Computed example of a mutant assay.
Amino acid sequence: MKIDLHSHTHCSDGLLSPTELVLRAVEKGVNALAITDHDTVAGLAEAKQSITEQQLPLQLINGVEISTSWQTFEIHIVGLNIDPTNAQFLQNLATQQQRRLERAEEMSHRLAKHNIPDVLPAVLALANGAALTRTHFARHLVNIGQANSMNNVFKKFLGRGKIGYVANSWVDMAEAVQWIQAAGGEAVLAHPLKYKLNTKWLKRLLADFAAANGDAVEIISPQQTPQQRRDLWALCQEYQFTASVGSDFHQPTTWNELGKNLYLTDDVKPVWHHWPLAQVAGNAF
């Protein structure tokens, strides 16, 4: 069974619609897919409807990816099997969306001071109601010729210490774990190697995540080496986490794909060990 528990649609910073995403997942042989847009569950209803109407052989896991603050770092926590209709959870996500808008306004203001005007209206139009991210800014700056690639935008304008960078004011990591679990879900530390922490700081992050009653760590991503996967699983065992897998898919590329290389070895206890994944159907569970 091919399982992918981290993906994005155009409801945040992905390029595919929820319908396009689930169709691509089926095309790539994925059996169970979590849609985990940034601080929003807006894409889940369309995805579920498409799976049901088209009778797709795909099991949808209701998910979200919450941006959080820990120490001086932005840490992403994926929520799996959350109840997307939970009123308090939706209210909590709304506070995150307001933070995103406030950050976008300040980013636009700073870019304007460096002779790049009118960024916010263009970014809002590009996002078209989606959760605002720096990716939307990067796409716009490429579109207007300020850089020739997304990576160069972050190096020149949006990375830490650059002219358009604004420090985040996200929810505390431990509080985000509480949000997810109160909505019936399990909290997963997303892509731990992307934060570029040394071993000491990574262990500190995992210890604090354990103290916050986090559930699992995403130990498998497409770009990781086998040794990195083994090292992450050893840390999971040390802190008693289960393991999750996710492509963090945003758009079709030559280096990343839904469900690609997301395998676990037999000695690893997956986050889904108690889920009814054997019953692949069109309904979320």
Rank of each mutant, 00 (worst) to 15 (best):
A131D: 02
H136N: 04
W70V: 11
L205T: 04
T85G: 08
V22M: 12
N92W: 05
G164L: 07
A182F: 01
F209V: 06
G161M: 05
N151Q: 15
T72P: 06
H76T: 06
A243S: 13
N62K: 14
Q59M: 12
S108F: 01
L15P: 02
Q59T: 14
V119A: 12
A147V: 09
I219W: 00
A176Q: 05
S7K: 03
Q223N: 12
Q98Y: 03
T135A: 11
L33D: 03
K2H: 12
I163F: 11
K196V: 11
E257T: 09
E74A: 07
V188P: 00
Q279N: 14
T254A: 11
I66V: 12
F137V: 02
T199R: 15
G14Y: 04
T265Y: 12
A216R: 10
P18K: 11
A127D: 00
N143K: 15
G145K: 13
V64M: 09
F241L: 08
S50C: 15
K196N: 14
V271I: 15
S169N: 15
L21A: 06
L232Y: 00
Q224F: 00
K2F: 05
T9H: 02
S149L: 05
A207S: 15
P222H: 02
K2S: 13
T85E: 11
L197Y: 04
N152C: 06
Q237Y: 02
F73A: 08
N143H: 15
I51P: 01
L120D: 00
E102G: 06
A174C: 15
V64Q: 05
N128C: 09
L101W: 04
V245Q: 01
E65A: 04
S108D: 07
V26C: 09
S244V: 02
Q91D: 13
L258M: 10
A243W: 00
I75G: 00
L132I: 14
L189S: 04
A207H: 13
E20R: 13
L141V: 10
E27G: 12
D4Y: 00
T254Y: 08
L111C: 13
L126H: 13
D4C: 01
S221R: 02
A281E: 14
T9Y: 03
T265I: 13
A211I: 06
